[in-house]
């Protein structure tokens, strides 16, 4: 489980963990039934407050992505993947905002941006290959 924390970018740290775990589950790196690091272990690894990690895990539990088994650690829940579609869209939504902001600043209209995306997509022939391939 590889999580990278950056205190400088302003996003609350617990949210960074939540987002990244969601991303890892959505992208299939973490599969349902996988055990994830205990709170203390992750806190010491990332050098962040254990309370923050605990809070992130709580949020993930509420969202149904993680499930805690009493005295046996925390695992990725069985229904982790079905939920992932909306998460995928949400992650991309955040990226899209950034892209649009940049396009706006550079004075590129939205239509041309969409054209550019389609063109790039054809070049990469991404659609034909396995969709869940990454990293």
């Amino acid at each position: 489980m590889h999580i990278h924390i950056s205190p400088k970018n302003g996003v609350p740290l617990y949210l960074q963990i939540v987002n990244q775990v969601k991303y890892l589950v959505a992208s299939g790196v973490l599969k349902s039934g996988d055990e994830i690091l205990p709170i203390r272990g992750l806190a010491e690894k990332l050098l962040i407050n254990p309370n923050t990690v605990a809070r992130a895990y709580r949020e993930l539990e509420t969202a149904g992505i993680l499930v805690k088994r009493l005295g046996a650690g925390t695992y990725v829940s069985a229904e982790g993947s079905p939920l992932a579609w909306s998460e995928r869209l949400k992650i991309l939504g955040e990226r899209a905002t950034g892209l649009l902001t940049e396009a706006h600043q550079l004075g590129v209209p939205v239509e041309q941006l969409i054209e550019l995306i389609q063109k790039r997509s054809q070049e990469l022939a991404w659609n034909e290959t396995e969709g869940s391939k990454h990293e």
Partner: peptide, 13 residues
């Protein structure tokens, strides 16, 4: 610095 942060984390843990 890592040692010190680690100590802080272990202490609150």
């Amino acid at each position: 610095r890592r040692d010190i942060l680690g100590a802080v984390i272990r202490t609150v843990a």
